[in-house]
Write a protein that binds this DNA or RNA. Structure first.
Lengths: 384, 384
DNA sequence: TTCTTTCGTGTCAGAATGAAACAAACGCGG
DNA sequence: CCGCGTTTGTTTCATTCTGACACGAAAGAA
């Protein structure tokens, strides 16, 4: 079978990435960012325009003198991607455009933790999302994110919530669905989404903290997401923060999971009140001024501030994104956290910029989609 | 004045860097590392060999089958560099070869903190080091490292130990000495030296912790030293480590400076004993089993372990270099620190590899030299 | 000796790039 | 209204960098 496709040069791929992240953006600006001459930009962008992957925005959107720019942008609606976050209980998915913008969402409970059951659930969820999307645009890729370790974006080597070891999930799903599948650790995927499509997109360095069933931590440095063999172990989840805090399940006193995770916060107040409370009720009670709830959330706020200070000082970043389904806590304790942060950080240092991504569970699924989009860019070919 | 010098291509500079860090190394291996074809390696290495900057080692040093390699190496003795670390009291310098190997060292007290006085002292020290070096090899560059903020490797924007603000130190010294001068923050310089010439040279990611007058922290990620506007503020120096520890000068209880710096450790034992003790005596007393000294150093050991765990978890590295003039502490409390580290780190995570650079004060000056060497590589030209 | 393996070199064609000249499209000031 | 300055984008072309390929070199192994 003769391949009539041309490899895309490194510069062309960088161009596509830059337009995807920063578009609409003029060729001149792209040249400055990528260190290329205007001539190269003309040459490199032509094939993308010819194939309809880029469009030339008509609005000139410039304010200074000189010839107005004709900004390049991606055809954001030309592709569809699906991102699915798999937890121990369910699969939560979104169908998105080229910029991981959610066009639809859905959830499906798992029928069990066996690989077959999870695969079936994901396949079913993808089908529902695809059908729910009115446009007749094919889904170009699926991203799956999961709490645990993933090798080569294909094999789940360890997933404690599912009891999995070395499951070739990407292969299985590709066989079932017939589209490219990318698997990634959930926090890494979320971090990728923030890097490419979030409020801090394009920043060379920032950290991500997620508050949810656990506490997640991701890092971008030198324009690259930091991944190690230990990504997936949740090493940022047991940072010691409060010597008087409760114990986490691993016996760490006052660690980030013990202070900040949804189950631990709910449990703390539950014990204090002598009855079960869920997280939303904790937030509501604290907002109403219930002293016990205020006490628990305030301790969480101080712990979060200390965690952010540690991150800023040790990971050497001045920007932190807060995300995850439990991020509603921030509205209550943001000020407390900022105060605690200030205490542990040199007053002469750059102030830490905090961005809250309050999309809740959708953020996780968007992360999975972002990984699929990134993979699609890696597969980019120019058909003759 | 006609310039008869050719610019060096990016690949050539990468080649020089790789040989400097990893030499002796075969062209084949270099090709694999740099992603270049054997033909390119032949072409790129030729000018360096012609000009005597590289040599072809005669020893073949290979064990497998096939034609033996003719490894390339730098002419390590062909150049001299001087590195000087400036503190509040003195300038400490080394004269080195191309790999920051110290050939001689010297110290000179400062006659004051005025810029003129410091410049004179450094000039005098450089002259002494140059004269003390028997070989008639010109000094190719000077590196100066200093505790504080440095802009563009030329201007000391802030140096609290000297009371400086915005001092164009590189310009001043270049005028006096007539050789290229590079100025850098002391921790950044030390980190650079570890990255290029230390036990962990070539590693893409590791952290550096220095124990000395303060506690320093440096980070290498994705093969690059992490520098920010706040490098020089010593943000790693006030990490909260022990809720029962003493206060540092900024009022942080049990922070890294309070637990680990030479002055704080000496002061703690001094108060306990009711008399002044210096650091060497602290270490000696602890070694002899003096209970008070053991208590102070043990607390320091546990704090160091917690600090290393935090670094490994938050900076996402699995290698930490310990350096600085107070690193002798490690011999006493290494095991304690490792135990404390293990407590704060997931047992399934990659074990943290700890390297101790016990060159003491020489390490600081070598760091300055390493920065000068790096700058010289940046200036690399090929005279026709 | 001959074969295998790996390393290194010379030649050459193809790809990517920037310099330079030029055209285009605006605001501004006379 | 009309040049003028300014910035953007295009075309052409020479240069540079690179890898493919063929080849030779230098060892150990059979």
């Amino acid at each position: 079978m003769a391949e009539s496709q041309a490899e895309v040069s490194g510069s062309a791929r960088e161009l596509a990435r830059e337009v995807l992240i920063h578009g609409p953006i003029s060729r001149a600006e792209l040249g400055r960012r990528l260190g290329l001459s205007p001539a190269s930009l003309t040459r490199l962008s032509k094939p993308f325009l010819d194939r309809g992957w880029f469009i030339e925005a008509s609005e000139t959107l410039q304010g200074a003198t000189g010839r107005p720019a004709k900004p390049l942008d991606v055809q954001v609606d030309s592709r569809r991607f699906v991102g699915v976050k798999v937890t121990g209980e369910s699969a939560f998915g979104v169908i998105t455009d080229l910029r991981a913008g959610a066009l639809g969402q859905g959830e499906r409970s798992l029928d069990g933790h066996e690989v077959d059951a999870v695969v079936d659930s994901v396949v079913d969820l993808v089908a529902r999302l695809r059908d729910g999307d009115g446009d007749a645009v094919e889904v170009s890729g699926l991203g799956v994110s999961i709490g645990g370790n993933v090798a080569d974006q294909r094999v789940v080597t360890r997933a404690p919530f599912l009891g999995w070891r070395d499951v070739a999930l990407a292969d299985r799903l590709e066989r079932e669905l017939g589209i490219p599948v990318t698997v990634e650790n959930d926090v890494t995927a979320l971090t990728t989404a923030e890097q490419w499509f979030g409020a801090v997109r394009g920043r060379p360095a920032f950290a991500v903290v997620t508050i949810g069933a656990g506490v997640g931590y991701g890092l971008v440095m030198h324009d690259r997401v930091v991944t190690t063999a230990d990504s997936g172990l949740g090493l940022g989840g047991h940072l010691p923060l409060d010597p008087n805090g409760p114990l986490c399940i691993d016996g760490h006193r006052g660690c980030s999971t013990a202070m900040l995770s949804i189950p631990s916060i709910s449990l703390q107040l539950g014990i204090a009140l002598g009855r079960e409370v869920d997280y939303d009720e904790v937030l509501r009670l604290a907002e109403e001024g219930n002293p016990l709830a205020v006490s628990v959330t305030a301790a969480a706020g101080r712990a979060l501030g200390r965690m952010m200070a540690t991150i800023a000082n040790i990971a050497m970043v001045d920007t932190i994104v807060l995300s995850g389904e439990g991020v509603g806590l921030w509205n209550l304790i943001g000020d407390l956290a900022r105060a605690a942060l200030a205490e542990d950080r040199d007053p002469d240092a750059t102030p830490v910029e905090i961005h809250v991504d309050d999309a809740g569970f959708v953020s996780w699924a968007r992360g999975a989609a972002a990984v699929a989009i990134q993979a699609a860019l890696g597969r980019l070919r120019l058909p003759a």
